[in-house]
């Protein structure tokens, strides 16, 4: 059975409540902010150089600050303002015509806490590429809807879960949670037991479950 696999040393003792609220110390490591008590090793990404990096460097210069590869997967880190033109360039000039996914990762201790990740795919060259931009809390990110129509719901989900708004999005509303819900569940400070007590009380007529 699976019990065998549960790490005896690392797992909390049986019956102990799951670790919930405490944000993990490594949170800031990848974003390079304040040193946590025990700094974990950062991602061992290596620089990436290829035909595509050449044309990107030529077109965008210092708008793209990092070209990296990790486990054979390439990604670039770009300025948020340049995102539009980068997506457009990649779609028209390099055939990255399929926007696979948009998601976010929250690094609360970083100066710009949200890392938005755009995963692209090119049918022509059978290649994947990730673009990362960083936005601070309360700052709007540029919407990709006018480059890739499919970004619509993906950006709404990021807004719903992280509270990152997208400038120029045609319908910036919550998608999975009820519209009147307060709070953004995938932010690190949002406890897994937390609910919107008022919403639960008003709409379900019960006390919130914690």
């Amino acid at each position: 059975m699976a019990d065998e696999e549960i790490p005896a040393s690392a797992a909390p003792p049986a019956g102990a409540p799951p670790k919930v609220a405490a944000p993990k110390p490594a949170a800031a490591a990848a974003a390079g902010a304040h040193a946590p008590p025990k700094p974990p090793p950062a991602m061992a990404a290596t620089p990436w150089d290829g035909p595509l990096t050449g044309s990107l460097k030529q077109a965008f210069g210092d708008q793209i600050s990092q070209y990296s590869t990790y486990l054979g997967q390439n990604f670039v880190v770009a300025n948020a303002e340049a995102l539009d033109s980068i997506l457009d360039f990649l779609k028209l000039e390099a055939d990255f015509d399929y926007l696979v996914d948009i998601t976010a990762v929250d690094y609360p201790k970083a100066e710009k806490r949200f890392e938005l990740v755009y995963i692209l795919y090119s049918f022509a060259s059978n290649e994947r590429l990730r673009i990362k931009i960083h936005v601070a809390d309360g700052v709007k990110a540029p919407s990709a809807v006018h480059v890739h129509v499919g970004a619509n719901w993906l950006e709404r989900e990021v807004f719903d879960m992280f509270g990152v708004e997208f400038e120029g999005h045609p319908n910036m509303r919550r998608i999975l949670l009820p519209e009147e819900w307060t709070g953004f569940p995938l932010r690190k400070e949002y406890s897994i037991l937390k609910q919107d007590d008022r919403w639960v009380k008003e709409n379900l007529g019960i006390e919130s479950g914690h």
Partner: peptide, 8 residues
């Protein structure tokens, strides 16, 4: 306990 990093 994978090394720090990310993958899709």
């Amino acid at each position: 306990k994978p090394p720090a990093g990310e993958a899709y």
